[in-house]
Design a protein around this nucleic acid. Structure first.
Length: 476
RNA sequence: CGGGGCGUAGCGCAGUCCGGUUAGCGCACCUGCCUUGGGAGCAGGGGGUCGGAGGUUCAAAUCCUCUCGCCCCGACCA
């Protein structure tokens, strides 16, 4: 614990790693590219699961579980899909000490096994829509890994739905993206931009892909969630047809969508500071810590009695950490809980007992305030609500300040060579222009925002006509 | 695939060039005392097949050969 977090200004990626390790969110595993998610990190994932799951259920989805291992032949059925995923797949070739007759892929995603099953389950339009989600792990072999942001194995949820019409599938794709947006903003306190991916960035096997894009504190973009309209590609590959009201056979329309433990990386990079993790209250399983402070024995008794009552009172509403450990000094405890991102700290010492007050310190602003002991439950509740809102506002302001409208290619290059950020520029839609920007600046088109103004313009690369601006940014 | 570097306690390292008591230091850990409003102090303690195998030698963390693993840069890929 004596080790210090590297300041962001000195080395941003080192800072990120320091926070993950020192806040005990995760640790490196013996297997290269894999990570262990520790209790502090898993607590965040549980809150993501809990809240998103409720939102999925509210929109009519149900959970199921499909197997980890996928027959090689399934993977091969959708051409674009297999081409996109094969290089990053882990494959099981031996089982029970014997070479397998057919290799088994460890799922990089579950479309193929799910559509093989949907073929059995979907007969008629009465079976539609089929709205299934699963919480699972997947493996994608990665060369360069980073804790939470890119690991070979990660946890996620993947929704897979089947619909009777293209329009319905499209509506589902958009609806889920909106669920993601709401979740990111209301819970993670991260503002996001929903939009459509360019063809080069779309999911292997999709008609088109939508994403929500967030800006991190180093001004790089992070894709925080994706939603795909798969059209009839998988239905055709797996021969999933249904009979409509008129008795005619049609291929079903599909969607898939997911968010992963990468969101934890986003959460860290969006709010944390040089002292450590900063958790939005709604993402803190334990939002409050009480640190009693005392010297002599008589003082100790009074302080602990006072603090204990407050603890009991707060416990009725929050999961409170009551840190009465005597082997550590208060300063040490302050630093430790700050590092772990606990949103609100209450310091209770002899002076507070005498004045019937408590010191409240908010993790994000670090401001100390004497608050009345009476009514403390509502006061803490209010402070947590305010903090949740202000974190979102702060992140939004930061993003807006670092989002620039640019019409000059030289300017675009300058920005990407310098501080970076989101650059809103016109794009003609050609892959060539997209590639040129990437080669020149390492920035890519993050997405084509839904909310973008439909304005006439000229492509920033080639000067051809364009109807809308897109987001250029370097990305994780 | 090319170049460079590193494997010694849980972590970070010294010792290796030039072989020689019982392999050491910081942090962490355990026990006790003392402390407590911003990361305390003192005393004591536990913890090591020196990455692995073979060799040279009276004697190897140290020299030689082989081998395994990891990191960085480049190339490749995205």
């Amino acid at each position: 614990m004596a080790e210090k977090v590297t300041p962001r200004s000195e080395d941003y990626s080192r800072w990120y790693t320091d926070i993950v390790l020192q806040a005990k969110l995760a640790d490196y595993s013996p297997v290269k590219g894999a990570m262990v998610i520790r209790p502090n990190g898993y607590a965040i994932w549980e809150l993501i699961q809990k809240n998103l799951d409720r939102m999925f259920k509210d929109t009519g989805h149900v959970n199921a579980y499909f197997p980890l291992l996928i027959p090689e032949s399934f993977m091969a059925k959708e051409a674009e899909h297999v081409e996109g995923f094969s290089p990053e797949c882990a494959v099981v070739t031996i089982g029970g000490g014997q070479k397998l007759e057919e290799n088994l892929y460890i799922r990089p995603t579950s479309e193929t096994i799910i559509w093989a099953m949907y073929k059995k389950w979907i007969m008629s339009y009465r079976d539609l829509p089929l709205l299934i989600n699963q919480w699972a792990n997947v493996i994608r072999w990665e060369m360069r890994t980073r804790l939470f942001l890119r690991t070979s194995e990660f946890l996620w949820q993947e929704g897979h739905t089947a619909h009777a019409t293209y329009e319905e599938a499209e509506e589902e794709t958009r609806k889920i993206l909106n669920v993601y947006k709401t979740f990111a903003e209301e819970y993670l306190a991260i503002p996001v931009i929903p939009g459509k991916k360019s063809d080069s960035e779309k999911f292997a096997g999709a008609l088109h892909t939508y994403s929500i894009e967030a800006m991190m504190q180093d001004r790089k973009a992070l894709q925080a969630g994706t939603s795909h309209n798969l059209g009839q590609n998988f239905a055709k590959a797996f021969d999933v047809q249904f009979q409509d009201k008129d008795g005619k056979l049609n291929f079903v329309y599909a969607t898939s969508w997911g968010v992963s433990t990468r969101l934890i990386g986003a959460l860290i990079m969006a709010h944390s500071d040089d002292r450590g993790l900063v958790l939005p209250p709604k993402m803190a399983q334990r939002p409050v810590v009480i640190v009693p402070i005392f010297r002599a024995d008589d003082e100790k008794k009074a302080v602990l009695e006072f603090a204990d009552k407050i603890h009991q009172e707060l416990k009725s509403r929050f999961n409170v950490i009551y840190d009465s450990r005597e082997q550590y000094k208060p300063g040490f405890k302050f630093a430790e809980w700050e590092l772990q991102g606990i949103p609100v700290r209450l310091e209770i010492g002899p002076k507070d007992v005498a004045n019937n007050k408590v010191v409240l310190v908010r993790r994000d602003t670090m401001q100390k305030e004497f608050i009345e002991r009476n009514g403390i439950l509502d006061r803490v509740t209010k402070e947590l609500d305010t903090m949740q809102k202000e974190l979102l506002e702060k992140a939004r302001n930061f993003r807006d300040q670092n989002t620039l409208i640019v019409d000059d290619y030289k300017k675009l290059r300058e920005i990407m060579d310098g501080d970076g950020g989101f650059v809103m520029s016109h794009w003609c839609g050609s892959p060539e222009c997209e590639t040129k920007v990437k080669e020149d600046t390492k920035a890519t088109i993050r997405n084509i925002p839904f909310a973008g103004d439909k304005e006439q313009g000229k492509c920033i690369v080639c000067g051809r006509d364009s109807v809308q601006r897109v987001i250029f940014a370097k990305a994780y």
